[in-house]
């Protein structure tokens, strides 16, 4: 069944049709939320909230890209969740010694499963990138995730974040610049094909 028919049926109160839409978009929604929030449970909460909002606001969808419309809801849900978590920060479960000192890499947190080099590299790259994306301000983070992760174009992102295209352009450029600077610290961790060139072009 096509997307438009599902939307029409959902608008008439067909919960099954709505859930078909949820199933079709939940991976994309969760992935975007995860990249914005860098936290699985928080992304889960934001995604669930986004789908509830989507159900309530479905009547406000008047054509165009449904994915972009949903991404706007997901982005807003992420902002709400981030704000909520800022107000009520969670305490990290830090392992401590008997003297109260933190253990940086406790043995019980280590993954003993053997990993091939490529997987290790990708994992390290992912961690590095996610760390740098997380270090960005919310407004820059959302733009870089929407363009580079969700693959939206500038126009869609402008509609999602309620800003002009010029703002999207400048925020994205600024976000990428910050990411580049941040990734300098992870230079050695990056696979050769992803390493950034330094000034001398090494």
């Amino acid at each position: 069944m096509d997307e438009k028919a599902l939307i029409d049926m959902a608008l008439e109160g067909d919960m099954n049709a709505f859930n078909h839409l949820v199933l079709a978009y939940q991976d994309m929604a969760f992935n975007t939320a995860y990249r914005i929030m860098s936290d699985g449970p928080a992304a889960e909460d934001a995604t669930q909230e986004a789908f509830i909002s989507m159900y309530q606001k479905l009547h406000t969808y008047h054509g165009g890209s449904f994915k972009a419309w949903l991404l706007r809801i997901v982005t807003n849900a992420c902002y709400d969740e981030l704000r909520r978590r800022k107000r009520r920060p969670t305490v990290a479960l830090e392992p401590e010694t008997d003297e109260g000192d933190f253990i940086e890499s406790p043995s019980w947190l280590e993954d003993d499963a053997p990993k091939p080099d490529e997987a290790l590299n990708n994992s390290e790259l992912e961690k590095a990138l996610q760390h740098c994306i997380q270090a960005l301000d919310e407004k820059y983070r959302a733009v870089v995730v929407l363009v580079d992760v969700a693959g939206e174009d500038y126009e869609s992102v402008a509609a999602i974040i309620h800003s002009p295209i010029g703002t999207v352009k400048s925020r994205l450029a600024r976000a990428r610049q910050k990411l580049q600077h941040c990734l300098q610290g992870f230079w050695e961790l990056l696979p050769a094909n992803f390493r950034l060139l330094d000034v001398e072009g090494k």
Partner: peptide, 30 residues
């Protein structure tokens, strides 16, 4: 330009996270 292209490629290459559970709604929830 080369640095930017590599960065973009790296971000795009981030593995897509799959939803850990279904987010389907039921009538009681809404």
């Amino acid at each position: 330009l080369a640095n930017l292209q590599r960065l973009k490629a790296a971000v795009r290459a981030l593995p897509a996270k799959k939803a850990p559970r279904d987010f389907m709604l039921n009538p009681a929830m809404v």
